[in-house]
Amino acid sequence: MDQPRRPGIVLTEAQKKRQRERSIAIALALAVLVALFFAVTMVKGPIVLQRPM
């Protein structure tokens, strides 16, 4: 049974732009968080990696 394809959600150009800006903001926030964790690990030094299991 071949059903006709219904179009999904079609965004306007303004919505696409806002979605892209939101995605970029989330990516930047994630990058800052990763950099922060890395910096804190470096400040604490390599002793952080030598913990007993």
Rank of each mutant, 00 (worst) to 15 (best):
R20V: 10
P46A: 06
L33D: 06
V32I: 10
R22S: 10
T12H: 02
M53N: 12
I9E: 04
A31N: 12
I9M: 04
G45I: 01
D2K: 00
E21N: 03
I9S: 02
K16H: 05
A35D: 14
K16S: 03
M53E: 11
Q19R: 00
F38A: 05
Q50H: 13
M53V: 13
Q15R: 02
A27Y: 09
P7S: 04
L11G: 00
S23L: 06
T41P: 06
V10K: 01
E21L: 01
K16R: 05
V34G: 03
I26N: 06
R22I: 12
Q3S: 07
R20Y: 10
P4W: 03
A39W: 06
A25F: 04
F38E: 12
V43S: 04
R20C: 05
A27C: 05
M42K: 05
R6Y: 15
A27I: 04
T41K: 06
I9A: 03
P46K: 07
P46Q: 12
Q15N: 01
L49A: 12
L28M: 08
S23T: 13
L49P: 11
A35R: 05
L33V: 07
V40Q: 08
L11V: 01
A29F: 13
R18T: 08
M1A: 13
P4E: 10
V48S: 11
M42I: 08
G8C: 01
I26V: 13
L30V: 15
R20D: 13
L36P: 03
S23R: 15
E13M: 01
Q15L: 01
M1D: 13
Q15C: 02
K16E: 07
A25P: 03
G8M: 00
R18P: 04
F37A: 02
G8L: 00
R51W: 15
Q50M: 09
E13K: 00
P46I: 15
R51L: 07
Q50C: 03
M53I: 08
A29N: 09
I24F: 13
E21W: 02
V32S: 11
L33K: 03
A27R: 03
R51K: 13
T12M: 00
V48P: 09
R6L: 04
R20S: 08
L11S: 00
I26T: 14
R5Y: 14
A35G: 10
L49C: 13
L30A: 09
A39I: 06
E21K: 00
L36E: 11
S23N: 15
L30K: 08
M1E: 15
P7L: 06
A27N: 10
Q15S: 01
Q3N: 11
Q3K: 02
E13I: 00
A35I: 07
Q15Y: 00
Q3M: 02
E13Q: 01
V34L: 05
R51F: 14
G45T: 04
F37H: 11
A39P: 06
D2Q: 01
R5C: 09
L30F: 12
R6S: 14
R20K: 09
I9Y: 04
V34Y: 09
A29R: 05
M53L: 12
R51E: 14
A35W: 09
R20H: 09
P7D: 10
A25W: 07
V10A: 07
M1S: 11
I24K: 11
M42G: 09
D2T: 04
V34R: 02
F37N: 11
P52A: 01
F38D: 05
T41S: 10
P4H: 06
D2R: 01
K16Q: 05
